[in-house]
Simulated scan of single mutants.
Amino acid sequence: MYCPGYTCVLCHQAHMETRDHLFFQCQFARSCWRYIYPGFTPGDNVHVNIDAIKQKLKVPFHMEITTLVTWSIWRTRNDFIFNGITPSLYRCRRTFKEELNLVFHGAKRKKYEGLQAWIENFR
């Protein structure tokens, strides 16, 4: 497979597209995280970031939220690379909301108590 480069396509800067950059350090990723966690400032690595998000959200479904935000960033990136769709925060947020609703509708209600109220905050 031909790769035109290894720089981040979301922030348009000459940053190597590493896991930490793509999901947490990139300006686009930071904007996506600030939607969920307004005070988000990325740490040194993925583990520090996930722990900070867990501490800030204080909900039992924090890992699902973390996974869905990173999935939304990944889909936005791939839509640009493979389909030529311009990345936008709006698109990333919409993907997050859609995926979060799918998790909620497929979840066992006892495990995700409070998830519906949390989702309502993003409508």
Rank of each mutant, 00 (worst) to 15 (best):
I85K: 01
Y37L: 09
C26Y: 05
F104S: 02
P87L: 07
H21Q: 09
K97W: 01
F80H: 07
H21N: 08
R91Q: 09
I53V: 15
N121T: 12
G84I: 06
I73L: 09
A117S: 13
A29N: 10
L10P: 06
L68Y: 04
D51V: 13
K54V: 02
K58F: 01
F61Y: 07
M63I: 03
R34K: 15
T70I: 09
H105T: 09
V48N: 12
D44Y: 11
E113A: 09
K58R: 12
E120T: 07
I65S: 00
Q116E: 14
D44H: 13
K110L: 06
G43T: 13
R93G: 03
G106H: 04
D44M: 13
T18H: 10
Q27E: 10
T41V: 15
G114V: 08
I50F: 12
C11D: 05
R94E: 15
K111A: 06
L10Y: 03
Y2I: 12
E64R: 00
V69M: 08
E120D: 14
D20E: 15
L68T: 04
K110C: 06
N49T: 11
F82S: 00
I50E: 10
L100Q: 02
Y90K: 10
S88V: 05
I85Y: 01
F61K: 01
C26E: 05
G39N: 14
E99I: 00
G114L: 05
I65D: 00
T18F: 08
S31P: 08
I36N: 00
D51P: 07
G84E: 06
K111T: 06
H62E: 07
L102Q: 13
C8H: 04
C26T: 08
R94T: 15
F96M: 05
T18G: 08
C8Y: 04
R109P: 04
C32Y: 04
T41A: 12
R77V: 03
N121Y: 07
T67V: 04
I119M: 11
C8A: 06
